[in-house]
Design a protein around this nucleic acid. Sequence first.
DNA 1: CCCTGAACCTGACCGC
DNA 2: TGCGGTCAGGTTCAGG
Length: 270
Amino acid sequence: MPELPEVETTRCGIEPHLKQQIIQKIIVREARLRWPVPKEITQLSTHTITAVTRRGKYLLIQTTHGTLIIHLGMSGSIRILPHDTLPQKHDHIDLVLRNKLCLRFTDPRRFGCWLWTLSDPLEHSLLKTLGPEPLTTHFNAAYLYQRTRNKNVAIKLFIMNSQVVVGVGNIYANEALFLAGIDPQRAVNTLEYVHYAKLVKTIKKVLKAAIKLGGTTLRDYTKSDGKPGYFQQTLHVYGRGGKNCSTCNRKLTEIRLGQRSTVYCSTCQN
DNA sequence: CCCTGAACCTGACCGC
DNA sequence: TGCGGTCAGGTTCAGG
């Protein structure tokens, strides 16, 4: 469910409830996530949460003694609930606070993760090699252009590679390429600097707009307060294969690229 | 190093 | 109603 806007929406939703609060306990009902949930995290009581930050699609819950590194995978979500709310199926982890609130992690497919580190989380092996944040100036046309020389991958796969830039998943890759007028299959070394200038702009634009609307709600995703996001109402291509292009009114093409569904307009995108 | 495809897992949906 | 196939917002890993 989560790309960068959904993770950022989650972060903003949980931060005010967690900051400066003391952990009472962490209950792990199902430790078989992407990687086994480490046993140490069930012993974090009395630690105070100092900050809730994000790097790419990873949420970082920093405490006085270490940092929880959380990823929502494909189907993960987090809600803030009263501590005595009965858990449902797939509610794998509760972070219970002394103030009687509970951060509950739900993840049917279990592609998400909860890890724990005592050192700088940005130096963790999963985070260390991540590309720049898309909404910073480090992500710019010159950077992308430089990284694409001598490479032959399709542009859509390239921008979805977290070593290149973090946070761009399947929805926003499709949308950004549509807005930039670029064919998702186009090999990166055939695109010029001007294409990258345009693409950087549309990626930033689409991510910012999605964050503003609380993310995209498809199927069951909701924000940390249980309410849906509204960005899906503004999608131009994602999930619209076979429907008409909002610009030229011709039928949108749907293909598979790197095992992911890819929708684009063969007239407007070249 | 570059690139592709399999793998991880559950649930919803579609056609027969 | 049941069964098999396909698809789903992500990422790592093995192998050519």
